Amino acid sequence: MTTFKLIINGKTLKGEITIEAVDAAEAEKIFKQYANDNGIDGEWTYDDATKTDTVTE
C-alpha cells in the first residue's frame, strides 16, 4: 500500500485527506467519490512525485 493525499481547494470546503491505496488509480477513484459526496466539482491535478491529487473549484 502507498500513501496518497488529496488537497481540497473548494469554495466552501478546504483541507486535505490522506489514504492508503494500492495505486494512483485506486486513490483517484476514492478521492473523486469523496469529492462527489461532498459536492466538490472542480479542476483535478495529480503530482506523481508527491502522490498528491489536488481539486480546485
Rank of each mutant, 00 (worst) to 15 (best):
T2H: 13
K11C: 15
N38K: 08
I19N: 00
T54K: 10
T56L: 05
L6E: 04
Y46W: 12
D37F: 09
L6I: 08
F31S: 00
T54C: 13
K51G: 08
G42E: 06
I7K: 03
Y46K: 03
E20W: 14
T50S: 10
T45H: 11
T18N: 03
I8Q: 00
I8R: 00
D48A: 13
V55H: 03
Y34T: 01
K14T: 09
I8K: 00
I17V: 07
E43F: 12
D23P: 04
V55A: 07
D53V: 15
E43Y: 12
E57S: 07
G42M: 08
T54A: 05
A24G: 05
A24F: 14
K5S: 03
F4L: 02
E16Q: 10
E26G: 03
T18W: 12
T54I: 12
E57D: 06
N36L: 15
Y34C: 13
D48N: 08
V22G: 03
D41I: 14
G15E: 09
D48Q: 09
I40E: 02
K14S: 07
E16G: 04
F4K: 08
G15K: 12
D53I: 15
T2N: 07
D48H: 11
F31M: 06
A27V: 08
I7F: 03
Q33T: 06
I30E: 01
I19T: 02
E57L: 11
K29E: 04
D41W: 14
D37E: 13
K32L: 08
T2W: 14
M1F: 08
A21T: 03
I17P: 00
A25T: 09
D41A: 10
L6C: 15
E43W: 13
V22S: 06
T50W: 09
Y34P: 01
K32D: 01
T50N: 08
V55G: 07
T12H: 13
E57C: 10
T2G: 03
A27Q: 00
G39T: 03
T12C: 15
D47F: 09
N38I: 14
T18F: 12
E26R: 03
I7D: 01
V55E: 05
F4P: 11
W44F: 05
K51E: 04
T54W: 08
D48L: 11
G42S: 04
N36W: 14
G39C: 14
I40K: 01
T3G: 01
V55L: 11
D53M: 15
N36E: 14
D48Y: 12
K29I: 08
D41L: 11
G39Y: 06
N36Y: 14
A35W: 10
G15M: 15
I17A: 00
E28G: 05
E16C: 15
K32Y: 05
A25C: 15
E57Q: 09
N36M: 14
A27G: 00
M1K: 14
D37Q: 08
N9Y: 13
D37N: 06
N9K: 08
G42Y: 10
D41G: 05
Y34G: 01
G42D: 04
I19K: 00
A49Q: 09
F31L: 05
G39E: 04
T2S: 08
F31K: 00
F4G: 12
G15P: 09
E43A: 08
T56W: 08
T54N: 04
D37M: 13
D53Y: 15
Q33H: 07
A35S: 02
E20C: 15
K51A: 07
E20G: 03
F31V: 01
N36H: 14
E26D: 06
T50I: 05
F31H: 00
Y34L: 08
Y34K: 00
I30W: 13
K29V: 04
D47Q: 07
E43K: 07
G39D: 05
I17T: 00
L13K: 07
K14P: 04
K11M: 10
K5R: 10
A49I: 10
T12M: 08
E26A: 11
K29G: 04
T12I: 11
D53S: 15
A21K: 05
E57A: 05
M1R: 13
I17H: 01
N36G: 06
L13G: 08
E16S: 10
L6W: 11
A21G: 03
M1A: 04
Y46D: 01
I30C: 12
D41Q: 12
G42C: 15
K51M: 10
K51W: 08
K29N: 04
T3W: 13
E57Y: 02
T54F: 09
K51Y: 07
I17R: 00
K14W: 13
E16Y: 13
I7N: 01
L6P: 03
K32F: 03
N9W: 13
I17Q: 01
T45N: 07
G10H: 06
D41T: 11
D37R: 04
E16F: 14
V22F: 10
L13Q: 05
D37C: 15
I17Y: 10
T52E: 04
T56S: 03
I40N: 01
